[in-house]
Write a protein that binds this DNA or RNA. Structure first.
Lengths: 339, 339
DNA sequence: AACACAGATTACATCGTTGTAAAACGCGGT
DNA sequence: ACCGCGTTTTACAACGATGTAATCTGTGTT
């Protein structure tokens, strides 16, 4: 059986509360008793019961991180940073996968309220309104990503502007047939939506008529889904001059299909991604993409969340992180967005 | 303030215990009271306090998953499956990163008992002896991977045989200069060790003298680390006939370097990986690799762990999963291991 | 009408920790 | 010796849920 404060107290010849005081270090304890208690703690290999502690003071020391799909490199890198940052501050992280099912996001918010977690970092997919619609008291939470939502704290990146800049860059040198890969088909991903909007913005600015056929839908944001979607597209359409994939994973699938079909990148077609995941840098050819400092994202998310949990703040806060165009071989030489 | 069983009980005109009975459904409750209680539950939007429940019955419903580095595609895919399987059975998953620091593994095993966690799935790096040496009572735990360890439950894959088979396959057609990438340098990764052993076994079987120069060390198992290590190697050595990378991530870095250096794969050199991660399939060229059913791995790990937690079993159990050679374009046509 | 009996409901205690408030202690000053 | 004051330590209760065992129903039997 595990030792409790009571056992330690008995062994050290003090009261349970004194043991608690030694463990927590908030209340002063005299030198002598502290030594005795610490010896007892070590001898009995005492480990505090966090359930009891959580019950007593209402906080568990655990935060939840909810992502669509942990197997996606982007999510994985983000999770890695969040876990690292949170651990550094003494928090434990519980992972939840929302699997693109908006209903699960909703469910999570109540899970958070079950006090198993003190707060929630949510990378939403389609929760334009789902999770947030919850009535009165939301748990402390931080939204991650592109969705703009007024009622909660969030760390955002201007996806519209980023997609616009990328499209403009791809259009350099007079290219006009620019396709995107990852547009919304049957599902409604908020990410796909904003990136599509940025793409259209750019076309409008360039005076290029939007061609719906060039917005290649792909609901499954994996290399496999991407490959299938692109193969289907190529079977019925001429090769575009540039292909802007809404994530690096999609781009990696696309590169694979293009290579097998004998199209040269960037000779025959430019390819760009979004997210700047590690594998993109080592793709063949290396992938041009939109980069965001994921470590900073994690740091800000954890900071906002801890501040919120400490109730150090009233109104919701929004932190906007910069993005940057990362030009690599898959587009050849490109110049920044056209003015 | 959040509603408790007490509040619900008052509203429904019953005792707290009856509310608990309705919520848990284990003790029969009459039709009428059940309806009344359920109405009260809904009206007050009752959510059970899991800390209290955990304190009372000693279990939290959370298991920990400890991995070296979540950002690695292999770890990410594995985590994805574990989370999905565990969720399917009503468990929550807490992620821990051991960051290749064996001391953290050790710490986890002891702290597991504190961390609001009922059990632990551990993907060890170098814990040949570290974590397991712990004195008396280990928490319920399952080891994942290649390390063979007698005292705990584990899900293993015969990495020595897999590496041997891959090396033999690469040696088909009379190739003799076969290098590996990912050997142990300063760190001592158990994974690197067993895969190196399999490689050497194969060479011995083929009568090829082992050449230490062809065991390219690389302590950082990322595409970046791999690229750096391979570049350094190529600066001083002739191109080998085949390159067996100890993970797909390493192979992806290698492919990138080879492509930039103008070496054709598989024309000038065969390249193979290990793990069969999603991106490997879409690498250019697609990566030959060792595949393991990660979903099965997760299922077995969770099953062993839940059985262990339920104390349905006494002695430790070992489940061995099969692997398979996945031949893709990066090695051209290969034939199974030479007899 | 009295009684046994199964099923539903309840009071109570408990899990381990810690905040509160009260008690014990030590020590210098008169 | 006694008082007062600041510092340590203690007893007690409470956090919320639930197992245990006792109590209360209502039905069917003699």
């Amino acid at each position: 059986m595990r030792a409790t404060v009571k056992d330690v107290a008995a062994r050290a010849g003090v009261s349970p509360k004194t043991v608690s005081n030694v463990v927590n270090g908030l209340v002063p304890v005299s030198e002598g008793t502290r030594a005795r208690v610490e010896a007892a703690l070590a001898e009995l290999d005492y480990v505090p019961n966090l359930s009891a502690r959580g019950l007593r003071n209402g906080r568990t020391g655990v935060i939840a991180l909810a992502l669509p799909d942990l197997a996606t490199p982007y999510s994985a890198e983000l999770a890695h940073h969040v876990v690292e940052v949170a651990h550094g501050q003494g928090w434990n992280v519980q992972i939840e996968e929302t699997g693109k099912d908006p209903h699960r996001e909703f469910e999570l918010v109540s899970r958070a309220r079950a006090n198993l977690v003190d707060g929630l970092i949510l990378n939403p997919v389609a929760l334009d309104e789902s999770a947030i619609r919850v009535g009165g008291n939301l748990p402390p939470m931080v939204l991650l990503g592109e969705v703009s939502q007024q009622r909660v704290d969030q760390v955002v990146v201007d996806n519209i502007a980023a997609a616009r800049d990328m499209t403009l860059a791809l259009a350099g040198g007079g290219r006009r047939r620019i396709a995107v890969l990852g547009a919304n088909g049957t599902s409604r991903s908020a990410t796909a939506e904003v990136r599509t909007r940025g793409y259209r913005d750019a076309l409008a600015r360039l005076g290029i008529p939007a061609d719906p056929a060039l917005e290649i839908a792909c609901d499954e944001w994996t290399p496999g889904g991407s490959a299938a979607a692109l193969r289907a597209f190529l079977a019925g359409h001429e090769l575009p001059e540039a292909l802007f994939c809404f994530t690096d994973s999609l781009a990696i699938g696309a590169l694979s299909v293009l290579a097998k079909a004998g199209h040269r990148v960037p000779g025959d077609i430019l390819v760009a991604g979004f997210d700047d995941v590690a594998d993109g840098q080592y793709a063949v050819p290396a992938l041009t993409t939109i980069g965001v400092d994921k470590r900073a994202m994690a740091q800000n998310a954890v900071r906002l969340l801890t501040e919120r949990m400490a109730e150090r703040r009233k109104g919701p806060v929004q932190v906007e992180l910069p993005y940057r165009l990362v030009i690599r071989a898959s587009t050849g030489q490109l110049h920044g967005p056209v003015a």
